[in-house]
Structure formats: structure tokens, C-alpha cells
């Protein structure tokens, strides 16, 4: 078993807003092992992006963070801003969802690529330039020398995301956080970018936290999966177990809504009824009960805890709590 790189424990993130205090992330815990890929999965607004920005220390100033973020023995949450900055872009790097807007439009690609290594690795201009060319070559950008002198608008979306990956990996981070890195890209480009990320992280033994809502991507990339719903972890296990025996009704619903090639042409696409509740208006009891086909009176009244039902497989659902008799996982699947 690989060594533990990051342990997030009881993470709570709240935002103080005009509408009161909103809890975006509640009691989230997970472990990322060295060189492994962890997928954070969930719909928009479930707290996965907030979780990743918390790890980077890039939350807005109205955020309050509780819990520990143990990264190689230091708790990131308690670090001073200066020390935090030394980690950012160095030990932990991030690739964002929007390659079209994530690069600075008025600075040359080379400028933006060389900033990190010059700051964190203390490289001089020449060495940073060589590293930049090397990184662009690694991410598969043709004529890297010329691209250094170009501006972001001269590159396509896929190329820009490659540049973002090159920027993120240039200081050889121990952890790469990728927030929906392929969502804004064409389907054919998506596969290339994912393949590239997998290859490069394997080469440098970089662990990856991949944030996505695409179960196809999860199946492709993940070692471990954390399913999130409405700011909470609802299910957590390794990728094989998740796809073989999904337990939480939400996970099951998501799996059922994947279109299947072998299904007859007139098959209706499955969907989960309803929408994710808003942060300001969370239902009491289980947060999923308003959309759950198996909801009982207990689900409405009482919030379930995250319980490890089988070793290595945790789920937050009354159906699987010890002593619960109905229904069994197979009936759900």
C-alpha cells in the first residue's frame, strides 16, 4: 500500500454572506495516497470545488475553514499565508476548469510558464526557459520554442489546457488538483488531456485529486472515489468496488443515468428526480431524502452518519446502518 500524502479530516467550510452563514462543505474526510488518483464526484454546488480551493488556500475572504488538512505532517489549515504560498504551485498545484480564461491574456505563454519555477525552484531566466520548453514538449505542444513567445488567444482550448497542465506540473508537485479539467473541451480532446494527465502524474509519482461529475472519467482515471452530495460525503470506496456494488441511492441513480450503447434506441434515459437543495435551504434529516426512492420516515427526521459498511467502503445512508434490515445492496443495484 502506498504512503499517505494528504489526509483531510472533518473539513467544514462556511461562507458568511448577506443571506447568513452558508455551510458549503460538512465533515468531509478522505485520504490521498502518493501517486494515486482520487476522484471527487458530484453535481454542481455539492462542495467539490470548494474542497479543492480549500486545499489550495484560495477561498474568498468570507470563508471559515474548520478541520485538519494534514499534508506530509503539516496542517495546511493552520499555516501562515506566507508558508501557504510556498506550498501553492510548488507541492500542490492546480488545473482549473476553464482553459479559455485561466491564462492571462496580456502575458506571453513563456512568461506565465516561467513564473512558478523561477519563484519556487529559484531558477534563473535561462534555466526556467529550458524547463518551460521541456514542459511544453512533455504536454505534447508542437514547436514549443515558438509557443513561448505567443499569447493565449493564439492557442486552441485544448492547447491552453495543455499549457495549464504544463504550468501546474513544472515544479513537480506532490499533489495535483484538477477541477473538471476537461469539461470545457471537445470530447476527443477530453480523452487526450486525461491520458496526458495520467501519464505525467505516473511519471512523476504525483498524486491527483480529480474533480468531475462524469462517471466515465471516474472509471477511466480513479483509484479511489469520494461521492459528494450537498456538501457531504455520501459514499467513499475504491473504484472497482464502487462500480461493482454502488450502495448509496444517489450513486445508484447516477450510474443508472449513464446512457448505454447496447440499450434499445427507444429506451428513456434514467434521471434522478428533483434538484440539489440550495445551501441556504437544506432539508432536515438525510439531505438526499427529497429525491430518494427509498426514503423512510427516519430519513426525513434523522441525518445518517457516514458508516464503513464493509472494510474500505463507507456510505451515508440509513439503509446500510448496522441493524438495518431492508433493503440489501443487491436489491438496490
Amino acid at each position: 500500500m502506498a504512503e499517505k500524502l494528504l489526509e483531510v479530516k472533518d473539513l467544514n467550510v462556511e461562507f458568511r454572506t448577506d443571506r447568513g452563514v452558508l455551510a458549503a462543505v460538512e465533515d468531509v474526510s478522505f485520504v490521498v495516497e502518493q501517486g494515486q488518483t482520487l476522484c471527487l464526484v458530484g453535481e454542481s454546488g455539492c462542495g467539490k470545488s470548494v474542497t479543492s480551493l480549500t486545499l489550495m488556500g484560495l477561498l474568498a475572504s468570507n470563508a471559515r475553514v474548520k478541520g485538519t488538512l494534514d499534508f506530509g505532517g503539516t496542517d495546511l489549515a493552520t499555516l501562515s499565508e506566507d508558508k501557504r504560498r510556498a506550498v501553492r504551485g510548488n507541492d500542490i498545484a492546480m488545473v482549473f476548469q476553464e482553459p479559455m480564461t485561466s491564462l492571462n491574456p496580456v502575458l506571453k505563454i513563456g512568461d506565465q510558464l516561467m513564473e512558478g519555477p523561477r519563484l519556487h525552484l529559484g531558477l534563473d531566466k535561462q534555466a526556467a526557459r529550458e524547463l518551460a520548453v521541456e514542459m511544453l514538449t512533455k504536454v505534447g505542444i508542437p514547436r514549443p520554442e515558438a509557443v513561448l513567445g505567443e499569447y493565449p488567444h493564439q492557442l486552441s482550448g485544448g492547447m491552453r489546457q495543455r499549457v495549464m497542465i504544463a504550468i501546474a506540473l513544472s515544479c513537480v508537485p506532490k499533489l495535483l488538483i484538477a477541477d473538471e479539467p476537461t469539461t470545457a473541451l471537445d470530447v476527443t480532446i477530453q480523452a487526450q488531456i486525461l491520458e496526458l494527465m495520467r501519464e505525467l502524474s505516473r511519471d512523476s509519482n504525483t498524486a491527483v485529486i480529480l474533480i468531475t461529475h462524469d462517471l466515465g472519467v471516474v472509471a477511466e482515471m480513479a483509484d479511489h472515489v469520494v461521492m459528494m452530495y450537498a456538501g457531504q460525503v455520501v459514499e467513499q470506496t475504491d473504484v472497482m468496488t464502487l462500480f461493482a456494488t454502488p450502495l448509496h441511492p444517489y450513486t445508484v441513480g447516477l450510474m443508472a443515468s449513464i446512457p448505454r450503447v447496447e440499450a434499445p434506441a427507444d429506451t428513456r434515459l434514467e434521471s434522478i428526480p428533483g434538484v440539489v437543495p440550495s445551501l441556504a435551504d437544506m432539508p432536515a434529516g438525510c439531505r438526499f431524502h427529497t429525491r430518494c426512492a427509498f426514503a423512510t420516515a427516519k430519513c426525513v427526521a434523522e441525518q445518517p452518519a457516514l458508516v464503513e459498511v464493509v472494510p474500505g467502503h463507507s456510505v451515508r445512508c440509513h439503509l446500510f446502518e448496522p441493524g438495518s434490515t431492508t433493503p440489501n445492496p443487491e436489491a438496490l443495484a
Partner: peptide, 29 residues
């Protein structure tokens, strides 16, 4: 408020560099 400012901060750049190099140049256009 732009995405590229978040990128600049994610690189671990200091607050002054983020403002003057990444923010101000765009703001002055």
C-alpha cells in the same frame, strides 16, 4: 475577479505580483 488571477494565485505568487503583474496590466486596458 478573473480566472487568470486565480491561476496566478494558485502558482503561489505574492499578493503584490498578482496585483501589479497580472491584475493591473489587464485593468489598464
Amino acid at each position: 475577479g478573473q480566472d487568470y488571477i486565480r491561476t496566478a494565485r494558485a502558482k503561489g505568487l505574492g499578493a503584490w505580483t498578482v496585483v501589479s503583474k497580472h491584475g493591473l496590466r489587464n485593468a489598464l486596458i
